[in-house]
């Protein structure tokens, strides 16, 4: 460090006002800062240990094996060779002609299968039977109506097109 006297003599020559100003710090510092000051040295990074050559290759082999299993499994479970639906092909089919080619047994099999798959408890024949039963019951009840009552009913509903 230089002598304070030399520095003051230098200031006398260039800026004498500065010689009279106190050099003591004026800025505020938290109380006890210098007493409590400590340096936080960062922890040294852990040393890097080199893997032996055999273990290194074993590691690579394991990684390759796992990758192989994953790729194979991916192909097995995802590659089902599904053909896309060909709408154009089906639009060219002549449905009545194709239907005529079917045998009765094939139709019967289809109806049974379709009923089972749809979950309904009726076959088409049981539906026909139900309709016939309803018509028979209605015919029987109409037989109990007299001719006069029918005549009157028709006269009253002469304008109703549903009865024509």
């Amino acid at each position: 460090m230089n002598n304070r006297k030399d520095i003051n003599e230098e200031l006398d020559a260039i800026a004498p006002l500065l010689k009279s100003i106190s050099r003591l710090p004026v800025q505020s510092v938290p109380e006890g800062y210098f007493e409590q000051f400590s340096v936080k040295i960062p922890a040294e990074s852990a040393p890097v240990v080199k893997m032996p050559m055999v273990r290194k290759w074993m590691g690579y082999a394991s990684a390759a094996l796992v990758a192989g299993i994953l790729v194979t499994a991916g192909f097995i479970f995802t590659d089902k060779n599904v053909q896309p639906f060909n709408y154009e092909q089906y639009s060219r089919i002549d449905v009545p002609v194709e239907m005529n080619k079917l045998t009765d047994d094939e139709l019967q099999n289809y109806l049974v299968t379709a009923t089972v798959l749809s979950g309904a408890g009726h076959t088409s024949s049981s539906v026909s039977e139900e309709i016939n039963e309803t018509i028979t019951a209605e015919t029987a009840s109409l037989n109990q109506v007299s001719d006069e009552e029918l005549e009157q009913f028709l006269n009253e509903n002469a304008g109703n097109t549903d009865l024509k």
Binding site: M1, N2, R4, I7, L18, I21, R23, L24
Partner: peptide, 30 residues
């Protein structure tokens, strides 16, 4: 206070001059 005026005056200096002045004036460096 002159000490605070001195601090404000030092602020006006370019960085290099500020450094030189501080080291000589406050730290008595040769």
């Amino acid at each position: 206070r002159l000490e605070w005026k001195l601090q404000l005056a030092i602020r006006q200096l370019p960085d290099k001059q500020k450094l030189v002045f501080n080291l000589r004036y406050f730290d008595n460096m040769a």
